[in-house]
Nucleic acid binder design. Structure first.
Length: 201
DNA sequence: ACCGGGATGTTCT
DNA sequence: GAACATCCCGGTG
């Protein structure tokens, strides 16, 4: 066990109002915050904004469905979806109730519970690959459909995001990854000079 | 480092 | 039937 994993986690959970804003405002502010679930914690270093019915790249573009229902709910909840037949990805719902706005959590730096992450991600050859990518991050955190709709503000299902006082990380902007529609919009933010991102802009 | 192909199944047309 | 907010592995340079 490293000194990092033994240290008590200090920090305040982000409140509802933090999320209740435009995803393009919330996204860069999430860089440097800690994603926490049980024994596992990591510093968020890459995010993407998905902006509801105005955004052709968003699941919300064609309106509410059973799958994206959480996205159209109140902000501050976790929207978890299944894709490519085997992967889960997690978003923080943002904006006002019913807007269908969210921020995809794409990469993070492992901070605590690395032993658990390694067990959950046997394919990762290096610790650098533990959380580098949205589906890898979910795998390492044990996040799947059961966590869809979890309230990040109350941590009703253990998942939450906290501010430990780390100063805002310098951000580099780029285009979103893996899209065929809305691929040109510059709605991806990475912490500058950070090796734990999925791809540099 | 970069590229190509396969895995795998839900969701929506 | 096609698309999919991805990942892994094995090839080549």
């Amino acid at each position: 066990m490293s000194t990092e994993s033994g240290r008590r986690l200090r920090g305040a959970r982000l409140r509802r109002g933090f999320y209740r804003r435009d995803a393009r405002v919330v996204a860069p502010e999430l860089l440097g915050k800690l994603l926490v679930r049980g024994p596992v914690a990591a510093r968020i270093v890459e995010v993407e904004a998905y902006c509801g019915s105005e955004d052709p790249g968003s699941h919300a573009f064609r309106g509410p469905t059973k799958r994206n229902a959480t996205m159209f709910g109140p902000p501050g909840h976790l929207y978890v979806y299944f894709t490519y037949g085997m992967h889960w990805c997690a978003n923080a719902v943002c904006g006002e109730d019913g807007e269908g706005v969210a921020v995809l959590l794409r990469a993070a730096v492992p901070m605590r519970g690395l032993d658990v992450m390694r067990e959950r991600r046997p394919a990762a050859k290096r610790d650098l690959d533990l959380l580098r990518g949205p589906a890898r991050l979910c795998q390492a955190f044990g996040i799947d459909g059961v966590s869809d709709g979890a309230d990040l503000v109350t941590a009703d299902r253990e998942v939450t995001i906290v501010d430990d006082g780390t100063p805002p990380l310098a951000a580099v902007v780029g285009t979103r990854i893996g899209l065929t529609k809305g691929a040109d919009l510059p709605w991806r933010w990475c912490a500058a000079d950070e090796p734990h991102v999925s791809r540099r802009p």
